[in-house]
Each structure stands twice: as structure tokens, then as C-alpha cells.
Write a protein that binds this DNA or RNA. Structure first.
Lengths: 153, 153
DNA sequence: CGATATCCGACCAAAATAGTCAACCGCTCG
DNA sequence: CGAGCGGTTGACTATTTTGGTCGGATATCG
């Protein structure tokens, strides 16, 4: 599981798409680009990957655009991130891979840590659907209080 | 909370430091560099930040090196990552910031999502101590993170 | 003093990211 | 039917981040 701004852009765009879908009418990238202030050409890239990943369907011609591939409640955020962030660069002991940390002396003691962290992230992003974000229903994590960042020591 | 390979390098180095600490003897960066196959100069950068963050203490001169600032059981992985990854670029609606998503039309519906994800990551990395990684005690987190404190090497 | 090791800043090259451009193709509506 | 809308593609560029180097300064032990 890799986290980049690209993934965030993709989610922003998908939320916009889901929020502005009426019946089966496609939404054009130009509309999303304007509303979300993301460049149209960049969106084209992202939606190319989203389409290949089955997250959205495209409708060509006048009045065309993109439609959700599945219902907003069935599309999980993790799906979107995975579709645009794909292959993993496999440098050393990377977040999403099992390979990498070759068997040198200390045999990458941190491997399990990253593996588990990656799992945690995937778990969380799989627990939230597109519909949840549109409805601003994202907090629901059981029993976690405030405090996010902001310690300097 | 930002996740980069830099943070991973720092954790790898810290694990090595913790694992090779005997009594109060400092460990030299040259040793860590050789064992972990990380360039010495790069390690110097990282340990400069770790020292400023209070994670390690330095001992100069021959026979010098670095010593843990706190006991391995008291140093959480999140501390290490925060020390080296610090400032956050604040582009748009970033992972660790509350600022960014300016009040345009849809007011960044994804903001809460990233905020909460960041919190989840921080929560997990705070639940694991340096001693845990050295002892390869990192798995077994079913669902959400486990007990954050109460375990010492 | 001199070897050892941290400290510090400037500098650099490669990679990933964010964004652009231009040409193309299918579809629908006038 | 054909013009134009809007998706499709891929190559190309600029910026940022990353990982790493170099050279020197400073501290300290013997």
C-alpha cells in the first residue's frame, strides 16, 4: 500500500464524481477539473488508470464522461488508491512487497513492521467506501480520541 | 504523518543501533553503515535530525558514536519517523495538516478521511517500540493497534 | 599533536510527481 | 452525414523529493 498525493487526487476526483452523479448521467472530466482545481490533463491520466481498474466506466461522445463502475457504497477507497498507485518500486524493503530485504547479516529486522503497517493502512482504507466520504461519514474508528500530529520533543 | 523511505532508513538504523548497544558504549555510524548498507554520509544527515529530536545522544571523539536517548522500550517508532520526516510540505490537503484545503466549492470532502488515516498510522507506529522491533515482536495487531505502553525489553 | 568521529552546509544526480501537449477516435446531434 | 464534443493515448517537460557526496570544522581521547 503506497500513499502518494496522486492517490489523494484520485480520491478527491472520485468523491466529486460520486457526489455529482445524477441517475446515469456521465460527468465530464472538465467539470471535475474545474470544481476540484485539478488540471484536466492530469485527470485524464488518473481516469485512464481508474477505467482500466474497473473503478469507472467511460462514455464517449457529446454528453459523455465518466460513470461509477460500481455503486458508491461498493467502491472502497483502497480500490481507488490501488488503481492509480499500482506497481511498487521494490526498493529495498518496501511497504507493499514481501521481496527486497535480501538476506544480509541482520536480515531486515524491520520487514515485519512495514508489512504490518501496510496491512493496517489497507485495512482502514478498505473500511471506508466512496459513499462514506461523500456523506462525510469517515470518523467511526472505534474508541480513538483526538490528537493527530504535533509533537516535537 | 508522512511515510517515506527516509523514515524507513532511519528506523533500520535505529534498530541496528539498539541491537548493537552493549552497556553504555556508543555505536559509530561507520559500523551501522557497514551492517545496514546505508551510506555513511546519508546516515550523518539522518542522525543529525535524530539527535536534534532527542532520539539519540552523540559522543564525539575516538571511541565515540551514538547512544539511545531513551531506553529501547521507551522509544516508539513514530518518534523516529517524525524526527526525520518533519516539516510537511502543506500541498493542498496533506496527510498531517489541518490547513490546506481552502474553502472552495466542495470544501475538500476528503479532508476528514486523510486526517483520520494519518491518525491511524500514527496510532500504529506509536504502539510499537524500538525494543519490539529488535525482538521481532511486531505482529499480532488484529484490527487496530494494541497496547501502546506497558511493555519493556 | 594527531587519529578518530561527530557535525554541518553546500552541492548533485536520479527518480518520482505533477502537469502539458498534440494527435486521435468514437459517438451523438443537428 | 459530418462537425464537434469528449474520452484515449503517449510522449514530453518542469518541479520536488530523495538519496548520496564532498569538504571542512570541531571535539575528544590517547
Amino acid at each position: 500500500m503506497k500513499l502518494s498525493t496522486r492517490g489523494r487526487y484520485a480520491v478527491m476526483a472520485m468523491v466529486d464524481l460520486a457526489a455529482h452523479t445524477e441517475d446515469g448521467k456521465p460527468v465530464s472530466l472538465a467539470d471535475i477539473a474545474e470544481r476540484q482545481e485539478i488540471s484536466l490533463s492530469y485527470l485524464e491520466q488518473l481516469f485512464g488508470k481508474l477505467r482500466r481498474g474497473g473503478i469507472v466506466k467511460s462514455v464517449r461522445g457529446p454528453g459523455g464522461g465518466y460513470v461509477l463502475g460500481r455503486a458508491a457504497g461498493e467502491t472502497r477507497i483502497a480500490d481507488i488508491v490501488l488503481a492509480v498507485d499500482e506497481p511498487i518500486t521494490a526498493t529495498r524493503c518496501q511497504l507493499g512487497t514481501s521481496v527486497g530485504c535480501r538476506g544480509n547479516r541482520s536480515r531486515c529486522a524491520t520487514h515485519d513492521l512495514w508489512e504490518e503497517l501496510s496491512h493496517q493502512i489497507h485495512l482502514y482504507l478498505s473500511s471506508v467506501s466512496l459513499a462514506d466520504v461523500v456523506a462525510r461519514r469517515v470518523l467511526g474508528a472505534p474508541g480513538v480520541a483526538r490528537d493527530a500530529v504535533g509533537r516535537v520533543a
